[in-house]
């Protein structure tokens, strides 16, 4: 049977496909040849192509994700970073000070203190080990100013939009800059009126992420207020 479904809402346990061959796509599971949903979300089915977009859920780290975190602790060789996930991330001191790092000559607090925000990339993570971060790339490192705002990690793609269109609308209309972490933390930089507006737009995305006309709603909100 060839099935086509366009953005249909599903709940955990809903049957998505009754003769699915192949590996179950993310957020679904297989029982025999039947494919079931694992989450509340929207499903798109085109024959064998099943895609489930969850509307809620914790952030599970993935290698190469750009994340925004906060330093919560440090020891002689690394910092512990809260990345809004199940697992605490680690930033090794060697990543910041280079190979010649020595706990005797370098002070970790000279670079990052507890409470500092930073933009980082995940370079290693699997089920058995906590995520490891790096800041040795362009655009990564300490975030000195801006307002952090939380959004459900599953709604981040909605905030970015197709090829970054939604983020671009918010940035130009509110005259701010958005630093969007895959882990659901967004830092908004710019004038304070702009930050307030951007925050309202982000909250609207949180509430109405499932609506198809979200871009228009954001446009309307921002045009009305400016």
């Amino acid at each position: 049977m060839y099935m086509v479904l366009v953005r249909t809402r599903v709940l955990p346990g809903d049957l998505l496909h009754d003769s699915y061959t192949g590996i179950a796509p993310p957020n679904t599971y297989k029982l025999g040849n039947k494919l079931f949903s694992l989450k509340v979300g929207l499903v798109e089915i085109d024959g064998k192509d099943v895609k489930l977009i969850p509307l809620a859920g914790p952030y599970i780290p993935r290698v190469n994700d750009f994340v925004i975190g906060k330093i919560i602790d440090f020891d002689a060789f690394s910092w512990d970073v809260d990345i809004n996930s199940i697992y605490t991330a680690h930033l090794p001191a060697q990543d910041v000070f280079g190979r010649e790092f020595s706990s005797q000559t370098h002070s970790l607090t000279s670079q990052f203190k507890v409470g500092d925000m930073l933009a980082a990339k995940i370079i290693a993570f699997d089920r058995t080990k906590d995520p490891v971060l790096t800041v040795r790339e362009h655009g990564l490192g300490k975030i000195v100013h801006g307002e952090p705002i939380k959004l459900s990690p599953s709604k981040i793609p909605r905030l970015i939009g197709k090829k970054g269109s939604m983020a671009k609308i918010i940035e130009t209309k509110t005259k701010t800059k958005l630093i969007i972490g895959q882990n659901g933390i967004i830092v908004v930089q710019g004038p304070s009126e702009g930050i307030v507006l951007a925050a309202r737009a982000i909250h609207l995305i949180e509430e109405k992420a499932h609506m198809p006309s979200l871009t228009n709603m954001i446009n309307e909100l921002l045009t009305k207020e400016v």
Binding site: L11, K39, V40, S154
Partner: peptide, 11 residues
Amino acid sequence: LADSGISMRDL
């Protein structure tokens, strides 16, 4: 549990 987005086989 469904609200929290934890993966569930069924409600």
